[in-house]
């Protein structure tokens, strides 16, 4: 158990192994691990950024949906108003159309009535004359009584 040159051999071996580790082992491992640490850190940062963006999007969504809902309500209101006004207009139009049709029908009827009266008047005259002719036959001169009969017919 005495001290001998094994000591020196061990010191040399130690130096060589440390040198080897420093030159060929440590830097290679460190490089990969640090790269991975960077990737993980970046990934976590991206994830938190993503979740923040999601939060913002969520808020934006609420705003947009609210706006859309308001707009939709407005459109529906507008449509309702429009519908009411169309119905009103249609009612007014229909009303006036009815009046017009009614009026024209009435006018036609009156026209028809007056025409029938004219016709009737003419016929009454001729019927009266024919009747009178039959009744008085020869006693009555058609020509001399025509004026009288015409006056009679005009009074009908």
């Amino acid at each position: 158990m005495d001290i001998n040159s094994t000591l020196l051999g061990q010191m040399i071996a130690f130096g060589l192994f440390v040198w080897f580790c420093k030159a060929f082992v440590w830097p290679l491992i460190m490089e990969v691990i640090e790269e991975r640490q960077t990737i993980i850190a970046d990934g976590l940062a991206a994830a938190s950024k993503g979740s923040r963006a999601l939060e913002e999007a969520e808020q934006e969504r609420v705003v947009i949906v609210d706006a859309a809902r308001g707009q939709a309500r407005e459109i529906v209101d507008q449509a309702n108003g429009r519908g009411t006004s169309i119905v009103d207009e249609a009612r007014v139009a229909a009303e006036s159309e009815r009046e017009r049709i009614l009026a024209s029908a009435k006018a036609e009827v009156e026209q028809e009535v007056s025409r029938a009266r004219e016709e009737l008047r003419g016929q009454v005259a001729s019927i009266a004359i024919a009747g009178a002719e039959k009744i008085v036959s020869k006693e009555i001169d058609a020509a001399s009584h025509k004026e009288l009969l015409d006056n009679l017919a005009a009074q009908i």
Binding site: I3, N4, S5, Q10, A13, L16, F20, V25, I29
Partner: peptide, 30 residues
């Protein structure tokens, strides 16, 4: 003093080389 403990030297170097080889193998193919 110039005597060498051959067994100690052999095992210490063998183990050091084992360590270096193992870690180098892994470090190279990380």
């Amino acid at each position: 003093f110039w005597a060498v403990n051959v067994d100690s030297m052999f095992w210490t170097v063998l183990l050091g080389v084992t360590f270096c080889a193992l870690f180098f193998k892994v470090a190279k193919s990380m």
